[in-house]
């Protein structure tokens, strides 16, 4: 797996801080790519606005990443070089037939820290059959697996008070 940077995406909410990931040498982080892409498509512009409000207002400001708002799956990762279990979640605005899915990892099972990845449009009956989503799901599992590993190996430090994730050197930019 290529290197990526774990970086802050939003820390303005009262209840939850969001991180994101950016491939080394990529111009944009994965979560911005997702929102930018679907914001530029007419049919998903409003769902993007709803999903962003759901993330920043409802999760970030009002409730945190509680179970009712953050679907968690513990999945056997198939198709990755190293198989294993990861706990990637899906952020779904609970509205009928909502077309977009955004993947994330709740750190240490807490409600106040989420790493957001990329996502996609649900184009088929199931996520697995939605081609674009399936690719992003697999990628999210890869990111999550590496982040969970970094937490276990104490490569990154989680500062509960400031809701910040730091490298062992106390650096804000974390290369994994």
């Amino acid at each position: 797996m290529n290197n990526f940077v774990l970086e802050l995406w939003d820390d303005e909410g009262a209840k939850c801080t969001f991180y994101t990931v950016q491939w080394d040498e990529a111009e944009q982080n994965e979560t911005d790519k997702f929102f930018d892409k679907y914001d530029s498509i007419a049919e998903t512009k409003q769902p993007v606005q709803e999903l962003l409000s759901f993330v920043l207002d409802s999760i970030g400001e009002d409730h945190g990443a509680i179970d009712a708002l953050f679907n968690r799956f513990e999945n056997e990762v198939v198709g990755l070089p190293n198989k294993g279990k990861v706990t990637v979640g899906e952020i779904v605005f609970l509205y009928p037939h909502f077309p977009l899915r955004l993947y994330g990892l709740r750190i240490n099972n807490r409600n106040d820290w989420v790493v957001l990845f990329n996502g996609g449009k649900k184009s088929a009956q199931t996520n697995q059959l939605s081609r674009d989503l399936n690719i992003k799901w697999t990628e999210a599992c890869q990111f999550a697996k590496r982040i969970e590993e970094a937490i276990r190996n104490n490569e990154i430090i989680i500062d509960s008070k400031s809701r910040k994730i730091l490298s062992v050197d106390g650096d804000n930019e974390i290369l994994l």
């Binding site: 944009q28 911005d32 929102f35």
Partner: peptide, 19 residues
Amino acid sequence: MRSKVAKRIQDETPEEVRI
């Protein structure tokens, strides 16, 4: 700190959508 993309989309979002 808020992502610039998120900030832009949020600024364009009608208030009624957020409510």
